[in-house]
Design a protein around this nucleic acid. Structure first.
Length: 734
DNA sequence: ATGTTTATTATTTTT
DNA sequence: TAATAAACAT
């Protein structure tokens, strides 16, 4: 039995699996078999050491990671795997709070607010506090509040740290915001963790219940934990001290979401008897790719030197290419993907294109569409953030918890039912004056016939709305989540509202609602008795990457951030330019630059066999066109790992030589410094023809390096295009 | 109360 | 450029 759990593990992995007593820190390089170690360690605990799975908790950051862990354990442990606690920090905390939250005065039916809900609540808090959202952007305030919460600073504690006037403003908003959350019986993501920590602090009995249950605790992606999450982990492990954390400081890319790498250092301090295991053997990538990754990450100062190795061969060289424009860059990607599929016997799904910002996906999408390459775009407009999906969820939330003010104000006039912003404002003020929650305030106002603040028409509308909601709330007691959803979209007229809406997306929006319904059906099958509650929780704590179905054979388009934890035989990283990777916003902060470097490292280490690094000389950004300087990261790759290749029909420019200088940037490699642009080949008003787009008129023609950028308005559906003269093959017509 | 126009502003987003 | 939000007019 023992041999079979340990079989196939390398010595370091085996050390990690067999070390089961006391604190353990596993530093897991990319592709080092981390998940394998975690799952085998759990299997070892259960099958060899006789620990009940019921007494083991494994915490991750994504549902996907949790699910994968579960699936693998199903194979290793069979049915017993079900007893294991495996989930995200947030899901774990939500279930603790549903069970034991009453101890700190939390109502069981609380709802969970996502970022959009938070923003709308903060906005209202600012309005009520008379703070100008122009001077103090909502997003910025929210991120400060979130940071405070992630450091265990509730308004009272935060108040003690306030030093600047700005923080004074934040404090004022924070206090109000938290008050409104409480009144709405709502928790934001940070609260989920924070409240559990407070629960454990305030109720030793509750803490005892959990810390004595969990003989073993494992934390995945430890480099991404924030202060609160680590505090929680310490509390859970405070009885038995069997805490195992797994992470890789070089893959820390979420510091902007308050992840704190220092937790790794704290861990060694908090647990001086920590055993550290280094997983350095990489099973994922070829030697060339791994060497590239290492040369990229090496320059980081705030880093512990570490070697990774592989027994794989060198493999294909890294391919670095330069395109003129982002369109050409996208086309080069697509061409190469096609070549790999046709000639190298690969599938589309073996390939992924990664980029720094979502806006970059557009050119790629267009190229895929044009050349008929099937693709799968991750992120972008996220399912659960779509208006129609959020609207329906808001109805369900109000049914579960009528105090949820964000959802209530969202749906009170959607579809339009003659309850305008004026009515809502007046009613809110009236309710505030009596310290009533909005929903109760509306009821009281109807009973008081408007009480002089609402006109009879408005009172009638509100009364009709309340009757509708009361009816639905009664239904909710007898209906499952899916049936309830049906009742909502029918009785509120939401379905009709979508179908008849003037925009042409109505049918598509309705499709999304149906997809949401499908998920309700799924949940009901799993947990029929807690239908609505389970559904809403799932919907709040689940992301889109979770639904990534690998079944369809398609090219994956994904941001570098989202790519963490994934792997592909072929990886393209596009936009290897200063200002994009590293992103311009990180330019002035060395710590942020190091994070950009880690982000690049994460991207590179996703590749198993082939890696392509592309950039464009010119890129459309914020309306204008920007000259792209090669990313400084390209300089750090040893030239011998790179294949110098030629783009068909275009001169190869060795833009990877010479450190990019700030300011005066050569647009076109070596040539541009000396040679003046060629004389203008075309001028505005010239008639031209293009072999693909047909006839057109030149709108503009400007020098771009040694080339010219020609803007042409085509007669065809192509419309106005910007083309490089050398590339476009424009024929001047009479 | 709702459709239209102007103004504004552009990373990343595990939960 | 293009998407979204606030201001505006109806």
């Amino acid at each position: 039995m023992q041999t079979d759990v340990l079989a196939g593990l390398n010595p370091a992995q085996r050390d990690a699996v067999e070390h089961i007593e006391g604190p353990l820190l596993i530093i897991a390089g990319p592709g080092s078999g981390k998940t394998r170690v975690i799952t085998h360690r759990i299997a070892y605990l259960v099958r060899v050491c006789g620990v009940s799975p019921y007494r083991i908790a494994a915490v991750t950051f994504t549902n996907k990671a949790a699910r994968e862990m579960r699936e693998r354990l199903d194979r290793l442990l069979g049915a017993r795997a079900q007893e294991l606690t495996a989930g995200t920090f947030h899901a774990f905390c939500a279930s603790i709070l549903r069970r034991d939250g009453q101890v700190i005065g939390l109502d069981r039916s609380f709802v969970i607010y996502d970022q959009e809900d938070q923003q709308s609540l903060i906005k209202r808090a600012m309005e009520e506090a008379n703070i100008d959202p122009k001077r103090y952007p909502v997003g910025a305030i929210l991120s400060v509040i979130s940071k405070a919460k992630s450091e265990l600073l509730e308004p009272a504690q935060y108040a003690a740290t306030v030093k600047s006037y700005y923080e004074e403003i934040v404090l004022r908003v924070y206090e109000r915001y938290q008050g409104m959350l409480n009144q709405s019986n709502a928790l934001d993501f940070d609260d989920l963790i924070l409240r559990v920590v407070r629960l454990f602090e305030q109720s030793p009995e509750t803490l005892e219940k959990y810390r004595s249950r969990y003989l073993h605790l494992m934390v995945d992606e430890f480099q991404d934990t924030n202060v609160v999450q680590y505090a929680l982990a310490k509390l859970i492990a405070s009885k038995y001290r069997n805490i195992c954390v797994v992470g890789d400081p070089d893959q820390s890319i979420y510091s902007w979401r308050n992840a704190d790498i220092r937790n790794i250092l704290s861990f060694k301090k908090d647990y001086p008897d920590t055993v550290v295991v280094n997983l350095g053997e990489n099973y994922r990538s070829t030697k060339n790719i791994l060497d590239t990754a290492q040369s990229l990450i090496k320059p980081n100062k705030a880093r512990i030197e570490r070697e990774l190795w592989t027994s794989k061969g060198a493999g294909a060289p890294i391919i670095v290419k330069e395109a003129h424009t982002e369109e050409e860059e996208a086309q080069m990607v697509v061409d190469e993907v096609e070549r790999l599929v046709k000639r190298e016997n690969l599938h589309y799904s073996d390939c992924a294109v990664m980029y720094r910002i979502n806006a970059q996906s557009r050119a790629l999408e267009e190229a895929c569409l044009r050349f008929g390459v099937p693709y799968r775009l991750i992120g972008g407009l996220r399912f659960y953030q779509r208006k129609e999906v959020k609207d329906v969820i808001a109805y369900l939330r109000v049914i579960q918890n009528p105090y949820d003010e964000v959802s209530l104000t969202r749906i009170i006039n959607t579809p339009p039912r003659a309850i305008g912003s004026r009515t809502v404002e007046d009613a809110t003020a009236w309710a505030r004056g009596r310290s009533l929650p909005l929903y109760a305030g509306l009821q009281a106002l109807v009973d008081a016939r408007g009480d002089g603040v609402l006109n009879p028409r408005a009172v009638a509308s509100v009364e009709r709305f309340l009757l509708l909601m009361t009816g639905l709330r009664e239904e909710s007691a007898k209906l499952g989540a899916a049936d309830l959803l049906d009742a909502v979209v029918e009785r509120t007229g939401y379905r009709q509202y979508l179908m008849e809406s003037s925009n042409d997306r109505g049918a598509e929006q309705w499709e999304n609602v149906l997809e949401l319904r499908g998920q309700a059906v799924e949940i009901e099958e799993l947990a029929p008795e807690v239908g609505l509650e389970a559904f809403l929780e799932k919907v709040a704590l689940v992301s889109d990457v979770d639904h990534l179905d690998q079944s369809k054979d398609a090219l994956t388009l994904i941001t570098l951030h989202q790519a963490k934890g994934l792997e592909f035989p072929v990886v393209f990283i596009v936009g290897m330019e200063e200002g994009l990777l590293p992103h311009a916003r990180s330019r002035d902060d060395p710590a942020e630059l190091e994070e950009e470097r880690r982000l690049c490292y994460v991207g590179v280490t996703r590749a198993q066999q082939r890696l392509y690094l592309f950039r464009a000389f010119r890129r459309q950004m914020m309306g204008g066109s920007m000259a792209g300087v090669p990313s400084r990261f390209l300089q750090d790759i040893p030239p011998q790992l790179i294949a110098t290749s030629t783009t068909a029909g275009t001169p190869t420019i060795s833009g990877v030589t010479g450190r990019p200088s700030r300011g005066a940037a050569p647009v076109n490699g070596s040539a541009s410094n000396q040679s003046a642009p060629m004389p203008s080949p075309l001028k505005a008003g010239d008639r031209v023809t293009h072999k693909q787009f047909g006839e057109g008129i030149v709108v503009n023609c400007v020098a771009a390096g040694t080339d010219h950028e020609v803007t042409v308005a085509f007669k065809s559906a192509a419309g106005v295009k910007r083309l490089l003269h050398s590339m476009a093959g424009l024929q001047k017509a009479g």
